[in-house]
Amino acid sequence: MNKIERACVIDDDPICVFGIKKILKKVGFCNEIIVFKNGFEAINGLKDLLKQNKPLPQIIFLDLNMPIMDGWDFLEDFIKIPNANRTYVAIYIISSSLDPRDLEKVKEYSSVTNYLIKPITSEKIDTVIGEYLN
């Protein structure tokens, strides 16, 4: 299996982050996991990576409901980051929202690869790996 170098989790819920990290480690998803508590921290963190000439994470798991800067605002700002490799970043929304308005809204963002409904299980992560390898 082509192991992913770096994955990123953006979520303000520590329990949720704890759970995802456990699962990602269990399936040996990637070498490095970076975590941000909200969209604002994430944008700054990703910009820092670029400054240090490090590549962006190949996969981002993004929560929607977060304080300071939520998932939607992150998506708006993310596409403004000047980096050609950005288009190779797969963004997965992770949310407990079943609101059809959210599902509809996601379609407006071409940078989003898919929408995962919490809880995040190892089966769902397997699907993500399958999609990524394709």
Binding site: I15, C16, S96, S97, L98
Partner: peptide, 21 residues
């Protein structure tokens, strides 16, 4: 309704993840 659904789901999800772990 959506808030209730979302918030309760957020908690129940966490509880189920934690108990499994």
């Amino acid at each position: 309704a959506h808030m209730v659904s979302h918030d309760l789901r957020a908690h129940s999800t966490n509880l189920s993840v934690l108990t499994r772990l």
